[in-house]
Design a protein around this nucleic acid. Structure first.
Lengths: 254, 254
DNA sequence: GCAAAAGTGTTTAGCTTACACCCATGA
DNA sequence: TCATGGGTGTAAGCTAAACACTTTTGC
């Protein structure tokens, strides 16, 4: 079979962009990198990069994640049962004008990670930081201010980030994905504070406890306890095998 | 700003593939086209094609849909309030070996359409047809048979179709998307038979009726009635503005 | 009349909610 | 002792599941 005639279709550049979310100090935060070159030089953006010629999309996302954060991705399809950040494909953005240089299609991925030390900048980023998602998104309305974080995200990254946050918010409702924000061992209270941070609501600690401990396969007690949150020692749990939460956790009306 | 050096990144072909679902004779069916050229010549595949140089991904999907079926797509973001098929992005498939000719990244889209007359084949397809999704997918296990529909779908289209079906099955649970399978005006019983066909279960007609008519904004009575299903005349409804179904329709355990 | 599909009413079981209350630790 | 968070008990209210029953048509 003859190879394609490259003039028969338009060539695209394909990139992966990452929405890396974590919970820090009771706030949902995303990883942002400062762009070191045009376009949007000096502006904040989502980490990402070109997909290589012989690389699958998920592999490219995992590689970029490792380069930016050192995190080992734990893809749902991956065979390795090791502990790591949750990685899933989010959506693909291909507006012809989204990159002023040329036609770029970006396959965005969503990463949920436990709280990490300050990120290590790599590649073409001058610096990298965790910022609350509201901070990164609030600049995107009419009043565009200048300053440290005072400009909207580069490209269409505000839309991508917004879609990723919405995906995370809805998905922890009916899955055990919120545990991806927790360290390997965590308490029920820590898990509850994840929900509270992601949803921006307060949950009843008593009912939450009953709900998550009463769902078979959701949490597995490790036997240990901790007092790192103060108060009475709390049981430590690990995420169980159950990936679907049925009935779902109910997100209070806002 | 200088344009990119094309040698700085690998060039990709970008296509859209369509999972077009409908309900015909109590079965969930998908649109399949027969390939008229290699690779996989003569095999069934999902409709699709190359994204044009200045075309957004959703526009390309809508164009391919119109070419294959004559359907007018009703994208959620679209401003036009006209009646049409539901179109949304599904996922992107970019395994380096998914197309033997070259590197192709395919942005799959999901279309939910009311029952239609036999499709009109167009483009490079020798023919097109609706087929039950089980028929299209069951060939994909170990025993690969030959014959009319007896070969698995081309490329990774079985995986794409499977993902699309799963998306549709889960999304009608908590949204009003099932109405996209119905004509503009429909009865509660017709809507119930859509759920039954998509999920492959039997639902209690009495409880279903109470559920959908009791959810504010879900169904809007048009005032008319019909006896096209036999029996007592049934009220006709249109899809209401409510897009989220809360509490969700419960999918019985299987 | 009879079959068939559309609707309504009622009971029961399970789940969420709200909140009273107790437990175990550090300071 | 007291503050703090962890954890249990319980009653009220809502919802879904199951199913008996009535309504309105075509044949």
């Amino acid at each position: 079979m003859p190879p394609y005639d490259p003039s028969a279709f338009p060539p695209f550049a394909v990139t992966v962009d990452l929405v890396v979310l974590t919970v820090r100090r009771h706030a949902l935060c995303a990883l942002a990198v400062r762009r070191g070159e045009p376009p949007f030089q000096g502006r904040w953006a989502l980490p990402g990069g070109f997909v290589r010629a012989d690389e699958d999309l998920g592999d490219a996302a995992a590689r970029e994640l490792a380069e930016e954060t050192g995190l080992h991705a734990q893809s749902p399809e991956g065979p390795s049962p090791t502990y790591g950040a949750h990685l899933e494909q989010l959506a693909t953005y291909g507006d012809p004008k989204r990159d002023p240089r040329m036609r770029v299609v970006s396959v965005a991925h969503l990463v949920l990670a436990p709280d990490l030390p300050a990120p290590t900048a790599g590649g073409d980023a001058h610096s990298a930081r965790w910022a609350p998602v509201e901070t990164l998104l609030e600049q995107d309305d009419s009043r565009v201010r200048e300053g440290e974080m005072g400009a909207p995200l580069a490209f269409d990254h505000a839309k991508i980030l917004s879609d990723g946050v919405e995906r995370a918010r809805s998905k922890i409702e009916y899955s055990s994905l919120a545990t991806a924000f927790c360290p390997r061992e965590f308490t029920v209270g820590e898990l509850r504070r994840v929900y509270e941070a992601v949803w921006g609501v307060a949950l009843d600690p008593r009912n939450f406890h009953r709900k998550v401990t009463g769902t078979p396969g959701f949490l597995v007690p490790t036997g240990g306890t901790t007092t790192r949150q103060g108060g009475r020692p709390a049981q430590l749990f690990r995420a169980g095998g159950a990936t679907l939460l049925n009935p779902p956790m109910l997100r209070p009306e806002v």
